[in-house]
Write a protein that binds this DNA or RNA. Sequence first.
RNA 1: UAAAGACGUCC
Length: 261
Amino acid sequence: ANEVFNKMIETGLRPNVVIYTTLISGHCREGNTDYAFKLLDEMVKTGIVLDVFTYDCLIHGLCKVGKIQEANIMFKEMLDKHLAPSVFTYSAFLHGYCKLGEMNEAGKIFKEMLARGLMPNDVIYTTLIDGHCKQGNLELAFAMFNDMVQKGVKPSVHTYTVYMHHLCKAGKMQEAHHLLQEIHDKGLVPDIITYGSLIDGYCKKGNMDDAFQLHHHILRKGIQPNIAIYNSLINGLCKLGDVQGADRIFKEMLERGLVPN
RNA sequence: UAAAGACGUCC
């Protein structure tokens, strides 16, 4: 991307705010905020002003690497310029605070967002649900889930998967499996990670029957199991002392062209 | 032009 950008300049073309923001976004996503700010500096020097997208990208990048204070400075700058923060701006802060486990701060951000009249979307809720779960507060996560449904925001497969993942980690397999049914009932399609979370949960409990039932289910659906799923199965079988079974599954994995890690 | 999720070993 940098090369194309440089070629563009060599050709004599002038990058606009969209081009700059796209490249800034890429570097932010890689966690390279220093480079992103270097580009920003260049952009400003050529007389281009930041728009809401530029701010959102930078705030996201800073929050991602835990530099929330610096993100707050950008946020204030944004407000000073009378640029309205979006759901994406708040999403970045929520992600940052949730990653740090600072759920009180995350709650404040959520309230501030509502006070601004912004409607939280499924990603906002999923981020909060994941944050509460990571702090071991499955009850609060479930309350957010209900709040979401009550407000008419439809949980996505990600929302379900995040919550199910933590239920599985907590060994609450019945609840987790019940949600798989709910995904189907709502016409949503579980993905490989949804299945992987359940399979790992069953394996950790030594319930290989249910683990393999799901494994066969995804094979029948034509979904290619990934290395994580095979690792879960092999680990589960080995922990039960079924080395032969583990060997069989290992061979199945190789036959499917997967490389052991 | 921007945002969120799963796996092994030891413990």
